[in-house]
Design a protein around this nucleic acid. Sequence first.
DNA 1: TAGACGTGGAA
DNA 2: TTTCCAAGTCT
Length: 288
Amino acid sequence: MSDLHQPILEWYDEHARELPWRGPQASPWSVMVSEFMLQQTPVGRVLPVHEEWLRRWPTPADLAAEPTGEAVRAWGRLGYPRRALRLHAAATAIVEQHDGAVPSSYDELKALPGIGDYTAAAIASFAYGRRHVVLDTNVRRVLARTIQGVELPSTAVTKAEREVATEVLPEDDATAATWAVAVMELGALVCTAANPRCGACPVAGLCAWRAAGRPAYDGPPRKVQTWAGTDRQCRGRLLAVLRDSDGPVHRSALDAAWSEEGQRIRCLASLIEDALVVHAGADTYALP
DNA sequence: TAGACGTGGAA
DNA sequence: TTTCCAAGTCT
């Protein structure tokens, strides 16, 4: 048993946030919806949307029965709206292939649209108490610091990194599942990327990075996301017009949302290609 | 495997 | 004001 286990498990027991997708009352579907929404989106912005989704669509079948456009609209401003499409597609697959119940195995989950390694492990672990290596950015950062002694993990998950995560995973399913969420929570609340609160950390005394004097990140430059003027910004503007409209909108409304014509046309075409937008009629567009 | 893919809050 | 980035996935 790793020396990290007990302090982190005890810390989690005392400091864990109460979130609607946690605890015994949360359904696997609630967990699944939260995991989709939390992919690259902060908890605070997910909270109200998740509540609305679970109220409106308490089961996968409820969502699957809706047009995909309703999922896109209800996604609101969470960002990366293709996640709404994939969640809808996953719900449809669950109805057709799993009798409407969120599957419990990693392999079955991984086969669903929008579910990669992290999300499959997270749902299996958090919703069903299975033992899995749950390797998200928080866990990677905590292990990079406490064990490897570096400020931040590499860009991509390495084999060695996964081996370390496997080695520190508790043996039994229940403890492994709690461990997974506990390490994530520690990374989210204490061992944060920018200003870690080592004074509040239960394993500060065991941390290799702290012992080394908290050396600054010394790896390849991390890519900076440009934003202004990008296709992503343009697509976001166009989709927002449709999302905020009850029905189809005329082309002129989209023209007003983005002045650069070539880019606007290209982005509208890509939104249609992605099935986030449909050509509703002569010069009118709508959510699918 | 590097790049595309939204959004808004914090420093 | 600008930069960074938050529970990733897909191609």
